[in-house]
Structures are given as structure tokens and as C-alpha cells.
Amino acid sequence: MTFEEMRDRIANGQGFIAALDQSGGSTPKALRGYGVEDNEWNGDDEMFGMIHEMRQRIIEAPCFGNGKVIGAILFEKTMEGESGGKSVPARLAERGIVPFLKVDKGLEEERDGVQLMKPNPGLEAMCARAKELGVFGTKMRSVIKSANPKGIRENVRQQFADGVRILSSGLVPILEPEYDITAADRAEGEKILLDELIAGLDTLHDDQQVIFKLSIPKEAGLYSDLIKHPKVLRVVALSGGYSTDEACSELAKNPGMIASFSRGLLQDLRKQQDDGEFDGTLSGAIDQIHAASVT
């Protein structure tokens, strides 16, 4: 796929984006969920080797290339790896799946009700490498924990500031200011977030577009204006701790918003499954998430 074909696939594709971007801090938990105990690996190299084997198995599963997955978000080590005898981004593109790269460096401590992203001085170099490998876009996550207008404003400002750096590098950013779904004031805070996101879009040039990855809103349809905005390529939803059933049920209430699930996609996959069982389990999750995304 060319870059413009990838853009069209994300803008108009009837499917969802898979999140395969667990990084160092979340990898042990992801492996345990996959049925790999901590005593089965020793050191980061073995840990990342095992998570790469899991991701290769997902990427090469017959159902993963059936057209219902339109994009996949990768961890940097996964981007640098191979699958099916090709680089992972090239293999994904070959299967009709648009590759994205997680580029944030983790979270700061909470302040003003939010966790901002850690500084990222090497962002442009990482984007250049991703572009060289055929990656279309990036993803970076920060967190909102309460309806604090000051904190939400700073959270969104940081997302857009780094987003402009990514746009200048020739990639399309996914901005992910996740709202903690357990927050008691989420309905109020998401309205503040929406206002700040629209204000941020006003700072972009007319020929620039971003993707938003947001928690499924408490108020169904809250993000409909974002979905229609000319500077928004797509609005995607994170599962945010919901089970697959819960996430799909909530997502289906928000037409135009598609999934970008991690836990919701991977929760029932196990290393011990044979290839047929693995593909069947993954296929069931893909079908369910796809149906919720295209409702």
C-alpha cells in the first residue's frame, strides 16, 4: 500500500485497529494473560522475544488478514522485528493492515488530575525510522483521572504539541488522552476534554489531520462532532479495562467510532492453544469487535 492508500484505508475502512503495542512495563502482564508465567523467561531479551512470538502468531493467523483489521499499533521492538520473512510493517501492509508505532516514553506522576507523557527528545528520529520501514502513523498515550480543567487543558496541549512534531515528520499521529473509566466525574470531564480537543484542532493547518483514540464516552454519541470534523481522519476507542463484551456493547452505542482494542482483542488467547484453536479464538474476537465497530 502507498501512503495515500493507507490514509484511505484508515479513513474509510470498515474495520478496526488492533493494539499490539504493550511495552516494557506492561509486557509481563500481557504474557501472563497469554499463559506465560514470569519464571518462563529471564531478562528483557527473553521477555521481548516471547511477546514477539505472540505478536507474530497473531499477525500470521489466517483471520488477522481477513479485512476486518484495518490497522495495527506496534511497539518499537516489534516494528524492528520480522514476521513471515519480512519486516513487521511490510508484512502488515501486505496483509492490508496499516502499521502504526507507539512513540510515547511512558507517563509522568499524576498532577492536576492527569498523567502527562514523559519528555520525548528523540521523537523525530523515531518517526524517521518508522517512515523508513513503511509505517503510516504513530500513537502516544496520556491519562486523565479527574475533571480538572487545568490538567485536561495541559494534557491536550501536550498531545497536540507532539502531534505537530509527528505531522512535520510525515506521519499521522493518533492522539490518546485516555479518560480513566473508573473516574466518578467522567461524564463532566469528557465534556471538558471534548472542548479542548476541538480547540486543539483549530490550531492545525487546514491540510493536517489527526486520529483520536479515546475512552468510550459515558454519554453515547458525545464525540459525533469530532468524527465529522475535517481535520480528524478517524476516532477510535480504547477498551480501557472493559471486557470484550462490555467494550463492544458500549462501542456499539457510538456510531462512527471504531475500536482500537488490546485487552478486548487478546484476552482469550493462550500460548497453549494449538493453531486451529488459536485462530478460532482470535477470529471470534475479531468478528465481535468488527461488528461493534461498523454498527
Rank of each mutant, 00 (worst) to 15 (best):
K68F: 02
K253W: 04
E40C: 02
K102H: 13
Q209M: 11
V103N: 02
L233A: 13
I198L: 14
V88C: 06
M126C: 12
L269R: 08
F136R: 07
E188M: 11
S243L: 10
N148L: 04
L204V: 02
N66K: 07
K253V: 01
D45H: 04
G264C: 07
K150N: 05
S146W: 12
Q208F: 04
K271F: 14
P255D: 07
H205N: 13
I152A: 06
P217L: 08
Q22R: 00
A220W: 07
E132D: 12
E60W: 10
G134S: 03
N148T: 01
V232S: 06
P121N: 07
K131Q: 14
Y223L: 14
M50L: 14
Y34K: 02
E219L: 10
A220H: 08
D279R: 02
Q158K: 13
G106D: 07
G65N: 00
A292H: 01
E82H: 13
L204I: 14
Y179E: 05
I144V: 12
F212L: 07
N66M: 00
L222H: 04
V36E: 02
V103Q: 09
I258A: 08
S169W: 08
D245Y: 11
F64N: 08
A237C: 09
S168I: 00
G25N: 08
A285M: 09
I51C: 01
G25D: 04
G151K: 00
E76C: 11
R165C: 09
A93N: 11
Q208Y: 10
A90P: 04
R32M: 08
E46R: 02
I73D: 07
Q22S: 05
D44C: 06
P62F: 12
L31R: 00
A93M: 04
I152Y: 03
L197N: 06
P177W: 10
D287A: 03
L265H: 08
P149R: 15
K213E: 05
Q56N: 12
D207S: 14
T281H: 06
G96Y: 14
G71Q: 05
F278P: 03
V232R: 10
G106P: 08
K253R: 15
A130L: 10
M6Q: 07
E132T: 06
L101I: 15
R91N: 11
K271Q: 15
G24Y: 13
D44I: 10
E108W: 15
K228L: 12
T182G: 12
E124I: 08
I73L: 15
D268I: 13
E124H: 07
G170Y: 10
